[in-house]
Simulated scan of single mutants.
Amino acid sequence: MKRALITAGASGIGFAMGEAFAQVGFDVWVTDVDATALPRCPSNWTTRQVDASDDVQMRRLFEEIAAAGGVDVVCANAGIAGPTARVEDVVWEDWKACVDVTLGSAFLCAKYAAPLMKASGSGAIVLTSSTAGVFGYPNRAPYAAAKWGVIGLMKTLAMELGPFGIRANAICPGAVEGPRMEGVLQREADAKGMTRDAVYDGYASGTSMRTFVTAQDIANMAVFLASDGAQRVSGQVISVDGHTENPDPKP
């Protein structure tokens, strides 16, 4: 049975990924920093409380995975929203925290997955970036910088690991329905002196499909990118966002 590891997998996009991989027959391993969220996962998933931006914890996790037989797919999905503020108002500690979790965790996934995948001669690494990784994004400097970094990491992984049969791709979700996006909407509304509904409408009107996307939409793409149907797809930035034209809501 093939094995998929998903970081930040106890809720939101990560949880939807876990469900999607389980449905196509994968042995699902999920990590999350939030121990209270892990019991929500199905009993046949392997769950571990892990800070995906902590080198020691990630090394130990992959040692356990190696002992269990290795890993076929890694979904580097951990990330935090970071502050919503003008660049001159961003606190250095908030910048570092956002970059450490969002970009650092993706690096650690790749660092420790690569030797296992090289040994098996195949593998797929799917990194969760964002439309913020392809557009400039006012008032979200740490998050946008980290998500752009995820894409740079992915491009490098695709070139470095491709000769070993390992593929790497990045998914760029747009605005995803759910509690996390609700927090972003409210913080942006507060920062811009707008209502939450006005910010929501601004995001939706910035897509050609006039819609947010769902966690399931992202999960479906992750499963495709890990499948035999995508065995020649690598180094790609794939947006699942309803075609975002302008990610910044109009005031």
Rank of each mutant, 00 (worst) to 15 (best):
V87S: 13
D72T: 08
G82K: 01
S105H: 10
Y137F: 15
G69P: 02
L103V: 00
T84E: 12
W45L: 05
C75H: 02
S43A: 15
V101S: 07
L38V: 00
G79R: 00
T46M: 13
I125Y: 04
V33P: 05
W95N: 00
E160N: 08
A106V: 13
S122H: 15
G149S: 02
D55F: 12
S120C: 07
F107S: 06
M17F: 07
T131Q: 13
G18Q: 10
L161P: 02
V91G: 04
C41W: 14
G79A: 04
K147M: 07
L153P: 02
T131R: 11
A78W: 09
D51K: 11
P83H: 06
A97G: 13
S53N: 06
V73D: 04
V33M: 14
P142W: 12
A22R: 11
Q57T: 12
F62M: 05
V30C: 03
A78E: 06
Q57L: 12
G70F: 12
A158P: 09
V24M: 00
K118D: 11
R86E: 13
V30L: 08
L127T: 15
K155P: 01
R86Y: 10
A35Q: 09
D72V: 06
R59N: 15
A132Q: 00
V90E: 03
V71C: 01
A68Y: 06
V28T: 08
T46D: 14
